[in-house]
């Protein structure tokens, strides 16, 4: 017998899973509302996605196909180890293909490919409270949510404009969900905020250290906060992907050498590979005169 044989399916015991599922159901019923839950110790440190892992463990079944991404990539240490964890404790199929996955656990990014009905996107969240930046007292932030007192969120955006001439917040950009609760999509880049709006997929957020779960059900309004004279805008990239020539996707800057050489490539590695398989090629891959010489 291996040591793992003593674990229940998907690591957590059934009672714990039921407790987490109840929190998830409540979160779905009140979109954007942070539901407290009794976060469990997981065999990985906080900061490594324990909230997301507990949510995934509570909803995953033997028939599910799991994809795990970190900064858009399937092959980072964090993504690899979480994927390996669920292969071990739940013996589920895993994939890197967004279209094939039934559950996608993520830190930072929402896949470029449009998610569809039946898919679940599970976010690993470090700080769930959008008001904490200016109001550290939790008794007060809870009251502000309850009474829908969200002026403080605009104070934060005001400060951005006063300091930088524009809203400079690029990550964890606050949104209003279903016209009611203000929510922190942390630490997703604001580039992905529009993908949350009216998504066909169910979006679940787990914060392990902070013991909170929240959700955006499918087909829900998700509106990024802004000012009339400083409307919400996503990041725009002038370049296209150096590998697959994609435009209008989120790009990472990669340093090539110590002489200032750099390139921009897709943050979503699966999307990039898929495009290359379909014959798209960026400037790094295109046959060049220099290479031929």
């Amino acid at each position: 017998m291996t040591e793992l044989a003593s674990y229940n399916f998907a690591y957590l015991d059934e009672q714990t899973k039921r407790m987490i599922r109840r929190a998830i159901l409540k979160a779905i019923a009140i979109p954007g509302y942070q539901v407290p839950f009794a976060s469990r110790e997981m065999p990985m440190p906080y900061g490594w996605g324990t909230g997301g892992v507990q949510v995934t463990a509570a909803i995953i079944g033997p028939e599910d196909v799991l994809k795990v991404i970190d900064q858009g990539a399937d092959d980072t240490t964090n993504a690899v180890s979480i994927r390996a964890f669920f292969q071990k404790v739940a013996d589920v199929a895993v994939t890197t293909h967004t279209a094939d996955a039934t559950i996608i656990q993520t830190r930072h990014r929402i896949p470029e490919r449009k998610l569809s009905e039946g898919q679940v996107l599970v976010y690993q969240v470090p700080i769930p409270e959008p008001l904490r930046f200016l109001e550290p007292r939790e008794t007060e932030t809870r009251k502000m949510h309850a009474l829908e007192e969200y002026g403080l969120m605009h104070v934060k955006l005001y400060e951005d404009i006063a300091r930088h001439g524009r809203i400079s917040t690029t990550y964890a950009y606050p949104v209003k969900v279903a016209g009611r609760y203000v929510m922190d999509p942390s630490p997703t880049p604001k580039f992905d905020n529009p993908k949350m709006h009216m998504s066909e997929a169910l979006q679940l957020f787990g914060a392990g250290r902070e013991k909170r779960i929240y959700a955006v059900p499918p087909h829900t309004d998700v509106v990024s906060l802004d000012f009339e004279d400083h409307p919400f805008e996503i990041q725009r990239f002038e370049q296209s992907c150096a590998l697959c020539a994609a435009h209008g996707v989120y790009l990472d800057e990669v340093v090539l050498d110590d002489k200032g050489g750099r390139m921009f490539v897709c943050s979503d590695t699966d999307n990039c590979e898929d495009r290359r398989e379909h014959g798209h090629s960026g400037e790094m891959l295109a046959p060049s005169k220099e290479a031929a010489e």
Partner: peptide
């Protein structure tokens, strides 16, 4: 609020009651 600007301190109540025009608030 000691850690936000004087302008935001004055503007907070306006934003709290729904003013959403940065230029007017300022």
């Amino acid at each position: 609020r000691m850690t936000v600007s004087a302008g935001a301190n004055v503007g907070e109540r306006l934003m709290a009651i729904g003013d959403r025009h940065y230029g007017n608030i300022r």
